[in-house]
Design a binder for these strands. Structure first.
Lengths: 237, 237
DNA sequence: CTAATAGTGTCTATTAGACATTATGTG
DNA sequence: CACATAATGTCTAATAGACACTATTAG
């Protein structure tokens, strides 16, 4: 049999295959805390439990896995997050009551303001701070996936400016430092933090200031390639 | 409908789902070069082309994705590599002629000696150096997966001693430095390299020496947790 | 002895940590 | 003015790069 013939007679349902889904851990930074987007499940299994936004590949609509995760996130937030990265793929025969199941997991970041109106308008979607997460009984193994996403982001905080994508487009250096501190779980020397960002030339001064109490702070924007920069020396853990 | 009823009537073939496979990029270091294990495909599609070792999840035999990749690697090499790490998952509707296809990719390392006899005894499996890889027309998108695996390993060479797993259990510091140099594509200062490994206390002196020409070199083994160590400062790229 | 490779000494450059100091806004 | 927060100056400590040097084998 040649390849042409093989393809003509190929039956995609010829043998059993694991269930395949895509899930996203979407983080934002708001009110001094890191928060994750959760969705109330409307279908079995684990119906009515809270879980990660995600779902199945739509073979017609999606051309690749990233299409799937973007489609799902846009459904829930109304927008496409500025940062999306594949986290890991988890597959085994215990995580889903239906049997062998594989989920391709992504981590994403967004400013809360970007999707505030969309999320406030529905009751089945909410931001949950990582501190109150342990008190929730999440669907499937989603609690451990959130944990893995957080660990990954913590690593990024040590050697990149990626956490900035969890802030609004314009932010202060203090804002950014706070996100990093929450991720690392320890304070950072202000001077060290500013020095490395300044040296790497990752931000643009918008000229604007934000004044709350005390001296007004300069508002910065990320330069376009800032997310790709990695410092050769890490912050201490 | 409650969950019990849902599960009882659940049909896993109810809707179309992508083809799911697992592939491994198994590297070794031999004769001054980094080599990757390739397998000649015995089935359509891309029959008779060379590609990565891999295959489908066996829902009965495998309990998780790592089981699948270990099973496949053991089939081809006779042994379980000492280092296996998930690389990334690639899924789209173009990479496989049969349609929407997802592959969960792993990077693995092994000493060539560990599987020499097993591989030499079969004709459908061979080590190919990364230099001669561009001249081969690999199956599917496997060429780019090898490239991604190599990039990942290059990053690891900057901040870990993971590349040591591509060497025999006992190796010299010069061996190890050479692997890193091949991965980085540039020479490393001998003193810098030795200093950081010594300071991190990652190796055990076996007491043995290996003598070829010149002064005999000390043979070392990895300490058990050596692979988990990350240096806080990277080598320069 | 020479050749070859293993291994060390030591200086410089870079960059993060620590922490004091100055700057700029509000009331 | 006091207060609060932003931003900077400057010293130290840690560690990679550069490169010269010494050590140990074979012949």
């Amino acid at each position: 049999m040649n390849e042409e013939e093989y393809l003509r007679t190929y039956d995609p349902k010829g043998f059993e295959s694991p269930l395949l889904s895509v899930d996203a851990v979407l983080f934002t930074y708001h009110e001094g805390q890191l928060k994750v987007l959760l969705v109330e499940r409307s279908n079995h299994p684990d119906k009515a439990k809270w879980g990660l936004p995600g779902g199945f590949v739509d073979l017609g609509a999606d051309t690749c896995l990233e299409d799937t995760v973007i489609r799902k996130l846009k459904e829930k937030t109304g927008v496409i997050p500025p940062y999306i990265e594949q986290l890991s793929t988890i597959g085994n025969n215990q995580r889903d009551k239906r049997g062998w199941s594989v989920t391709v997991c992504y981590t994403a970041l967004i400013a809360r303001q970007e999707c505030e109106t969309h999320i406030d308008s529905v009751s089945d979607t909410q931001w949950v701070s990582l501190e109150q997460l342990p008190s929730l009984d999440l669907a499937f193994d989603h609690a451990s996936i959130v944990q893995a996403g957080r660990e990954r982001l913590k690593q990024k905080a040590l050697y990149s400016i990626i956490p900035a994508y969890s802030l609004p487009e314009r932010f202060t250096l203090s804002d950014l430092q706070h996100v990093h501190e929450v991720l690392l779980g320890k304070p950072i020397q202000k001077k060290s933090f500013r020095r490395r960002i300044e040296q790497a030339d990752l931000l643009v001064d918008t000229g604007e200031k934000r004044s709350e109490t005390g001296r007004p702070a300069t508002l910065y924007k990320l330069k376009s390639l800032a997310g790709q920069h990695t410092f050769i020396r890490n912050l201490e853990l």
